[in-house]
Design a protein around this nucleic acid. Structure first.
Lengths: 341, 341
DNA sequence: CTGTTAGCGCTTTCAA
DNA sequence: TTGAAAGCGCTAACAG
């Protein structure tokens, strides 16, 4: 790899001239410019990324940070990631996926900071999320996908769905079909989304004049896959004779577990049991039989907007704290219908 | 952000001492060491990634490169990515997703090289893949997932499935069930995988004494989604009265299109039509009705092994060119059966 | 329009 | 066991 010095020498100019030929930060005569480009081509010169970053104190890399011990992407994350990528791609930024384990980081107390200008934080927890605290302290620019810990809610930019409204919406929908025994198979309890949606569910139910006895919720136990969880809970509840006539599932996969349990027990969907799900992986929802009615969370849009927000933040230092609410869409397919009298 | 100089000053030592306290590359007295650590803590010091990389000429970042205009991950890529991440994570490497468009790169003719030590190249094309040529010329370490362009086959390390064998295997399986009119809904024609699998298919068919007339193949037209393609081709072929009794689909999604077409035309699977697919997204394959028989390509393993290979390459300069063949697994579910007499 | 000179924050000789 | 100084490859401020 040849350096800027060699190019300068070969072209017979100073290195600042070479630098400026590429950056175009100051006018260079056509003649000199040609000579430099020629030399660069001959030497197969490419500017060194690290050296440049060190000098300008900026990397044009953003990071995406997943929680938990193992960095694993789910279907939802995949769509979100696609949104992030497409935006990075347009703006000429690169994307670094955070893959260093917490373990590893703690062992090496003074590990180097990530080589990023800013970060997108996924799946925050409601209380003390160490990741956001750290970044607040260190003054690293970041945005959150989801809702920040309460204490920071007005201090951090984030993009999220309106999960309370979503919880209310699906519940009201089911209520309007005459269901009153509605089981909510929710995300893990510590996640902010699951709380918000649960509140929405509760609000809809009590607003409809139903008592607290009507609240039927289970939070995902992460030792199980969501499909297993959907299957087991559904089976247990249906067998317990609790008269549940509708189920809200957190994800398409969880819903597939619900379908399986229903089939095994001889419940027909939607005749005997209505099912609705958050998140909409259309190819997945469509091959379920009957096709699954969903709330589309617009994961790709979440990723895209989060990225926009972050880049805006990076490029305009006095940009303000914003929260962006991404609309969700109700996608009616064939898994819900009027409750039997 | 405080720098090594400030730490050195506060601790009353030279910066090389500070550096060595962290890197432990030379012995430092306990006493001094304590003092430095204390100072670092006070100043909330974190080594600067870029500066360090510049000095050591190594980034501990690897890149993953997707082809095409838009960086978009599919289900298969997702599993693969998970494999890559888990390996990075263990070895303390970071992962950079290549998101700069070809457009953008060409406009800026001398764009800076990526800040990576090496790269994983996905989905190579059979002939002149510009990405691999570039990296060969520039001497950037890289490995390929899939088969390299022929001219480079012995010069580049790669990990792949044995796609010829896989093509043969599924075809022989179908043959053994008595099918002789087998439609192959393949990946795009320019992909190396699709050629290899097609050769395997052909080999099995001709080995069984069938003439070339029995070769029925369609390559994915990428203007369509694979589900659409599966649907349309199946419908067209079934309606044309070509007596097809079995279909090999490139992906689970494509197979879902096949299912839909079959249902519309009143063909029952597997009674009237056997379906088998490459790639195995178990949650997806299982909710198809009947569950889809697949060849599991072990995407996660592909990613993991590719990463291992690359890191091995980076850390041991005289490591050799290797090719690693990842085993695939035959997963029998309910979508194939004996052909009707 | 172009060259010279300092850094950016770290690691790595070379001396002591 | 420690310090001083040079340098990684680039950009930026200042001169001219």
């Amino acid at each position: 790899m040849s350096s800027i010095n060699e190019v300068a020498k070969l072209a017979g100019v100073s290195k600042s001239t070479v630098s400026n030929v590429f950056s175009q930060k100051r006018p260079i005569s056509k003649e000199v410019s040609e000579r430099v480009l020629q030399a660069a081509r001959e030497l197969n010169y490419k500017p060194n990324y690290m050296a440049r970053s060190l000098a300008v104190k900026q990397t044009r890399i953003i990071g995406i940070n997943m929680p938990g011990e193992r960095a694993k992407f789910s279907q939802f994350h995949l769509s979100l990631l696609n949104g992030v990528l497409s935006e990075c791609y347009e703006k000429g930024y690169r994307l670094l996926v955070n893959t260093l384990s917490a373990d590893f980081k703690e062992k090496v107390e003074f590990i180097a900071s990530d080589p990023v200008d800013g970060e997108i934080i996924l799946d925050p927890t409601e209380e003390n999320d160490k990741r956001v605290e750290d970044r607040m302290n260190q003054g690293i620019p970041f945005v959150i996908v989801g809702k920040p810990p309460k204490i920071f809610e007005t201090a951090i930019s984030y993009v999220d769905n309106d999960n309370f409204a979503i919880g209310t919406q699906v519940t009201n929908y089911l209520l309007s079909l005459g269901h009153v025994r509605i089981l909510f198979l929710n995300a893990p309890e510590y996640r902010t989304v699951s709380k918000d949606r649960y509140q929405g569910y509760k609000y809809a139910l009590t607003s409809a004049g139903l008592s607290n006895d009507s609240l039927l919720v289970s939070f995902l136990d992460e030792r199980k896959t969501s499909a297993e969880f959907g299957y087991e809970r559904t089976k247990a509840v249906l067998e317990s004779g609790s008269n549940v006539t509708a189920i809200i599932a957190d994800s398409n996969k969880m819903a597939s577990g619900v379908y399986r349990a229903a089939e095994e027990l001889g419940y027909r969907i939607p005749e005997d049991l209505s099912v609705i799900s958050f998140s909409n992986e259309s190819s997945y929802a469509n091959i379920l039989n009957p096709p699954l009615t969903c709330i589309d969370l617009n994961a790709e849009m979440l990723g895209k907007e989060a990225t926009k927000l972050l880049l805006e933040n990076l490029e305009d230092k006095n940009s303000i704290v914003k929260r962006i609410i991404i609309p969700s869409e109700f996608v009616e397919r064939g898994s819900c219908r009027k409750a039997n009298e």
